[in-house]
């Protein structure tokens, strides 16, 4: 997979061998890497590399709401800020939040809010900042996936995780996890998120042309793919703590006896004294 993202749409998205442009099968995911606890100053944070997508998420709060009139006396509120950096796409993106960014912030917020126990924190706000460092298709799905990780890392009580992936249609065939090119020149795009505690759809958007049979088929394939991503999410959350444990498994106590300490301190003192003498 090349790091350079060319800004031209190719004619054929699926080759004669049945493989996609980047050599994937029709229902194959791009390589995914997740990590939590990457930003020390945030209350919770996560990072995801999903193909060429590179996204950071940071959670702050629960904290006081400003402006105060936004606060709710019966429940806390969730604010989500999706932002694409100016260098994340091949042509410079204007830094001001546009219509698209506001929409994506809103859909991510609406997808995540039902799984959080915000009623435990009345009069306060939980803020999620999502920064897209590098974008190559399917960022709203990757952002939903990583925002949930950051919230779990921050210790906000939640009923379960949420995972998202997009299906699409290219050359009349259903594909899973569209890349940037497939997003732009494909025939349809179907981002979908599932909240696992009740197995219900948390986010579903659609753009393009697809008949109902194809729609059902793509939802089935999405669920199949989401199961795989969910396992990666679970691993990422546990890895932070299990690594420390595994590191200590082979721990053997190397206790220096107290006599030794005194000897060593004496010898150290002597050395220091000798050193001092020499300099004089």
């Amino acid at each position: 997979m090349s790091l350079l993202i060319k800004d031209e749409s190719p004619e054929k998205l699926i080759g004669e061998d049945g493989k996609r442009l980047d050599g994937r099968d029709l229902n194959e995911l791009r390589p995914i890497k997740m990590e939590v606890g990457v930003i020390p100053n945030a209350d919770g944070s996560a990072y995801i590399e999903w193909g060429n997508n590179k996204i950071y998420a940071a959670v702050y709060g629960p904290r006081e709401v400003h402006p105060r009139h936004d606060a709710r006396p019966d429940r806390g509120i969730l604010r989500t800020f999706y932002r694409m950096t100016t260098f994340s796409v091949s042509e410079r993106k204007r830094p001001a939040p546009g219509r698209r960014e506001k929409e994506i912030s809103m859909v991510i917020k609406n997808a995540i809010e039902p799984v959080l126990f915000l009623e435990l924190y009345p009069d306060s706000v939980v803020e999620v900042f999502i920064e897209v460092i590098s974008a190559d298709g399917g960022t709203r799905c990757a952002c939903t996936t990583v925002a949930v990780l950051a919230l779990a890392d921050a210790g906000i009580p939640m009923k379960g995780l949420i995972t998202a992936v997009a299906a699409g249609k290219a050359n009349g065939k259903i594909i899973i996890d569209c890349s940037g090119d497939e997003d732009k020149s494909g025939e349809a795009d179907l981002p979908c998120a599932i909240s696992w505690y009740n197995n219900q759809i948390a986010l579903l958007q659609f753009d393009g042309i697809m008949d109902l049979k194809e729609f059902d088929k793509s939802i089935d394939q999405i669920i199949e793919a989401l199961e795989k991503i969910r396992k990666l999410q679970e691993e990422a959350l546990k890895k932070r703590y299990i690594d420390v444990r595994d590191h200590l498994k082979n721990y053997k106590p190397e206790v220096v006896s107290t006599n030794n300490i005194e000897e060593k301190i004496d010898s150290n003192n002597q050395k220091n004294q000798n050193g001092g003498d020499q300099t004089e």
């Binding site: 200590l248 030794n260 060593k264 301190i265 150290n268």
Partner: peptide, 27 residues
């Protein structure tokens, strides 16, 4: 703080302090 979720912590911390004292030459 980093090893809070592991078992046998008190013993390990005891060893750690003793060894560090020797290494740093603290009486």
């Amino acid at each position: 703080e980093t090893e809070a979720h592991t078992s046998g912590l008190t013993e390990r911390i005891k060893d750690f302090i003793i060894n560090e004292k020797t290494r740093r030459g603290i009486n």
